[in-house]
Amino acid sequence: MNVESIRLINFRNYNSLNINLNKRINIFIGKNAQGKTNLLESIYMCATGRSFRTNRDKEIINFNKNEAYIGAMINIDNYEKFIEIKMERDKNKRIRVNKTELKNYKELYSGLNVVIFSPEDLKLVKGGPQERRSFLDMGISQIKPVYKYNINRYSKILFQRNNLLKSNKSKSEIFSLLDIFDVQMAKIGTDIIIERAKFIEGLSDICKNIHNITTLNNEDLTLEYISNVQLLKNKTNMEKEYLNKLKMNFSKDLEIGTTEIGPHRDDIIMYINNRDVKTYGSQGQQRTVVLSIKLSEVELIKKERGVYPVLLLDDVFSELDEERRKYLTRSFNEMQTIITATDVIDLEELQNVERSIFYIEEGKLII
């Protein structure tokens, strides 16, 4: 799996860029604010349909232009796909796969899997539960496209249910009208929780081993999935329990005007040697935990899809010590890796691997 080429027009600070990428290592070097991260963002969008930096597509369009374009040729198991994304200031973005336009970006399943690791990923540990739920949703969606569909359906039902709770209708009327939402919510929510639990279980097994290696067996990392709906072996029984909890919590939901029960309240707790990393971990430990989780996600995608994803590394080498950097580079020969850095990366492990080095300055490729 690799990105063969990418073309950008009026994307962020790129007026025009057309570049062929190496199947293995690609290193983009430039000072801060030159456009290196923008390039990773465009690749990420071709995989997921959205940015990892903003929910507002208008921010992606060059300041002086009204529309932007991404075109990427990707290769998956020797089958080529051409992904195109067009954004306009006064319209919804349009996505085409092999010239066929999708109805909505949420329908995108390009087949391109990516894992991105950046300094911002410390939010995975230090941020709120929403950061960790987003990580879960993106990771599982790349492995199981139906999960993405379920998340979108669940979000719509949750929105409608919350609106009903805030309505001026009587308590009895609201209670009776909630039935149709609660049955759907319990069914779809159960599917989401089951998939999340499976993902965390698989990730945790890999993570434990990787973290032991990167910390020279000094730290034992475990991940715990937290949900206010009990995970049961029997799916039908789990749906019934979920539905019952919604009914039991009705009065409280009505009082606060929002739904408390369901996967939209889920979280992940990360432990090092049985201590909560968010509360007790040092910044160095938190950074190493994120590295372990990201590398574990790479291996989990390989296990599920049978092929490695594209690894995107956004200026992370300066954040890691020598041992962590060496460990990270050992996996590069297994997948296409796209790296951004402010300086030339001088690592012994990179000297004898297939690689291409590019220099970026003010949104331009310097040859």
Rank of each mutant, 00 (worst) to 15 (best):
K364S: 07
Y154T: 12
L254Q: 10
K278I: 03
E80Y: 06
K235N: 06
L254D: 11
M87S: 14
E349S: 14
E107D: 15
Y327M: 09
V229C: 06
I60M: 04
G306P: 08
K106R: 07
I256Q: 13
S282C: 09
K187Y: 10
K99A: 06
H211C: 01
V97D: 06
N78L: 07
L246E: 05
T279L: 11
G281S: 07
N150H: 14
Y308K: 03
S204F: 03
K303D: 11
P119Y: 02
K240L: 13
L17V: 06
C46V: 06
F135E: 02
C207E: 01
L122D: 08
A186M: 07
R133V: 10
G71K: 08
I85L: 15
E322R: 12
I268R: 08
I269T: 10
I293T: 07
K31T: 03
N13P: 08
Y147Q: 13
S176M: 09
K302H: 12
L164D: 09
I25Y: 00
G284D: 05
R305H: 05
A33M: 07
K123S: 09
K93E: 06
I200T: 03
A33S: 13
S141Y: 01
E349R: 03
I366Q: 13
N98K: 11
K364N: 14
T279P: 01
I338W: 00
L347H: 14
V229P: 08
G306Q: 09
L178H: 01
R324E: 09
I6R: 00
S167L: 06
Q230Y: 06
V114A: 00
K303R: 11
Q336G: 03
M1Y: 05
L311M: 10
S118H: 02
L216M: 15
I180K: 11
P145K: 15
N152A: 15
E59K: 12
F175E: 15
Y327W: 08
I301Q: 10
N15W: 01
K103W: 08
N78I: 02
K148I: 01
F250N: 13
L313D: 00
I116P: 02
V115Q: 01
G306F: 08
E239L: 06
E131K: 09
A341R: 01
S172H: 13
D90N: 15
I83R: 00
Q160K: 13
N163W: 04
E224D: 14
E260K: 12
K156R: 13
Y308V: 05
Q130R: 14
Q351Y: 10
S318D: 13
T222D: 12
F135L: 10
S51A: 08
K126H: 07
I43F: 00
R355D: 05
L231Y: 04
M238P: 07
I60Y: 01
L102V: 10
S331R: 08
K294L: 06
I210Q: 04
K106P: 04
R153T: 07
K208Y: 08
Q142K: 12
K91D: 11
N168Q: 12
M248T: 15
I339K: 00
D220M: 05
D77T: 08
L108G: 03
